[in-house]
Design a protein around this nucleic acid. Structure first.
Ligand code: MN
Ligand code: MN
Ligand code: MN
Ligand code: MN
Lengths: 217, 217
DNA sequence: TAAATTTGTTAGACACAACTAACAATTTTA
DNA sequence: TAAAATTGTTAGTTGTGTCTAACAAATTTA
């Protein structure tokens, strides 16, 4: 069994591999807010447990075993978030920090029950896919809203960042998953975008459009 | 904030004070399956944090602060057990080891929500009182079934031991909270008791009758 | 290519929470 | 009350996961 610290490293490596392909000690250090020497020595430990491949000064990669263990923690995280929103009435902005703790609970029964009560959901409340119980995850190939062009009609399928502040900002603008919108204009100078949806017309910065994933309608 | 280890010590001291009044290093050591020198040094740490009173070779007691912190962990434990049984469909024999982990989750919102969804329950699935959010717990002074006499009619109000094995044993005999029974006979030699309830007539040992709490009807 | 910057490792320290071995105090029993 | 048993402490060790200081390698910039 892996420790709490090990589990958090695995999850972070998984996310960084997803974003950038390979992972440097430096990146992992910043992501986890843990100093490089600590990360470096943890990588030796994880390599020893055959969860990552790692040689000094070379990039880090999850092994297949490591990838599956990371995916199963992410599964617990996302099932929990979905359960908290759908069955307990929490807002999508409230659940991440609770799931960050519950993802480490050791109880296959608990997560199997959540899964069952939720009807075996494919996505979490932020639109991210929930890995199956063997660790398989269907990758989402949606595009960033920031990459869309004027005149396009799109539907929000996921958000990239799940911080309380970002999601509360979206709540304030009544922006949520499934929302359909038209791109009115795109400011070339700073990438800010004017969109319309329902009765709203809003201008949002590229900081926001970079964190929203959409599908073309 | 207290560590996981500290929280488990506080809970154990609380339970032992409840059972025996005062707590010896030895008892705590056995209860937690942690060697005495470790317990001894932890007591210094907890005394330093003003959670217990402790002097070498003297019995351990929780301070008022320690008592409240212990009660709040027990509150989280029992709310969780109740939630798992009432809202998720677990059996009363399945929930203790899950609650043992979830009791350490730091999220007032999560437990407030459980409490609300459950309608602010006073008792957990094993009949134990749930402390309120200020750490107050109404003690319930039921008597052990083993102390009852032949001919008495009683109702089961709580079970003392919440191990999977004990509760599964009770399930097998269709014994549950709220069950009313008549004491047919009591064997003086070994304390075994013959009881009848519904269509059942069973003889149960004193190991069992010691762990069942009842009220007189 | 040489210097500067960034990235990473090694070495040594520390806090926490566990352990064993040895010894000391307290309580029970003879 | 003396011996034995039980209970508890002290001292020193271990493993985990963090840190800082110092140094080394790799990459970027001049
Ligand atoms: Mn999340
Ligand atoms: Mn986590
Ligand atoms: Mn319990
Ligand atoms: Mn616990």
């Amino acid at each position: 069994m892996n420790t709490l610290a090990e589990e958090n490293y695995l999850k972070a490596i998984f996310a960084l591999m997803d974003e950038n392909g390979e992972v440097m000690v430096n990146e992992l250090s910043q992501r986890l807010a843990i100093k490089m020497p600590t990360v470096s020595s943890m990588m030796k430990k994880l390599a020893n447990k055959n969860l990552v491949t790692y040689e000094s000064y070379k990039p880090i990669r999850l092994t297949e075993k490591g990838r599956v263990e990371a995916a199963l923690i992410i599964r617990k995280h996302r099932l929990t978030e979905m359960y908290l929103v759908e069955k307990m009435g929490f807002g999508w902005e409230e659940v991440h920090h609770i799931a960050e703790q519950i993802e480490h609970i050791q109880s296959p029964e608990l997560f199997a029950k959540m899964d069952e009560l939720l009807g075996f959901p494919a996505l979490d409340p932020h639109g991210s896919p929930i890995p199956d119980s063997s660790g398989k995850m269907i990758p989402r190939e949606y595009q960033k809203l920031s990459h869309c062009k004027t005149g396009e009609k799109v539907k929000i399928t996921a958000v990239v960042n799940t911080s309380h502040e970002f999601l509360t900002f979206l709540n304030g603008k009544q922006i949520h998953l499934g929302l359909e919108m038209i791109i009115h204009s795109l400011e070339p100078f700073d990438g800010s975008m004017t969109i319309s949806y329902k009765e709203n017309k809003e201008t949002i910065s590229s900081v926001v459009t970079d964190r929203i994933l959409v599908e073309q309608l």
